[in-house]
Design a protein around this nucleic acid. Structure first.
Lengths: 124, 124
DNA sequence: CGGAATCCGCAATGATACTG
DNA sequence: CAGTATCATTGCGGATTCCG
């Protein structure tokens, strides 16, 4: 999905949030400031490159703020911007909608649903 | 994005809504019952095949209901299910968030933002 | 440690033709 | 009109390597 088809804000947001990682990263960032390697630990399956790319995308969109510490070894921290924080409940609402829609087994609800990417890797 | 990485509902919803078309189709379907060709008119840039694929995906997800009329010429109508209707405001909220975030010019707000895919094609 | 550049395979997408 | 099947193409996403 490279070029926009309409000027519709919905399409523009989806262009930003589409894909497996954006919402997941936002989710983990919700927990507070994270370093690059922290996020890699949170999502073991994302490649070095993808993480870097996705973070930049979110940064450009003003959802994530990047802070670089020049020392050694290089160190960079990421955190949600206010806009990013405002986005969180909307994403949670979608997750909530999904649970109440797809099944009746609400094992965990919106604000507390915990991704478990760490060890549960489901491949086709 | 084929396989899931976590059992997180957020990731599952995104797997469904990711891409350019799902949200756009839901948006147009919000207006009421539509035929296949109506939806093609709404989104001139979607291919015949894609529309068919995306509609099936939404149908399988229980967001869209398909009604087939056996007469001739063949005729099929699509409409949002109750679950689909519940999803609409959530998507609108995202569009709303985008507008208040990316700029300060709130020219139109959530429930009334109108996609104009019909003629405004922006390529990179 | 964090990130950019490169190469490459595969899945998603699009064009076309065919069926009911 | 609506949908499927087939084939060609694109570009995402992953592995690797080099730079700061």
């Amino acid at each position: 999905m490279k070029s926009l088809v309409s000027r519709c804000p919905i399409e523009e947001v989806m262009q930003l949030l589409s894909g497996r990682w954006p919402t997941l990263l936002i989710y983990y960032l919700k927990q507070g400031t994270k370093r690059f390697s922290d996020l890699r630990r949170d999502n073991p399956t994302i490649s070095h490159k993808m993480l870097s790319l996705e973070l930049r995308k979110l940064e450009d969109a003003g959802i994530v703020e990047r802070t670089e510490f020049e020392g050694y070894p290089l160190r960079v921290e990421y955190q949600l911007t206010p806009a990013g924080h405002r986005l969180v409940p909307l994403i949670d609402a979608l997750g909530d909608w999904w649970e109440t829609t797809s099944d009746g087994g609400g094992h965990s609800s919106s604000a507390d649903a915990e991704p478990v990417a760490s060890n549960t890797v489901l491949r086709d």
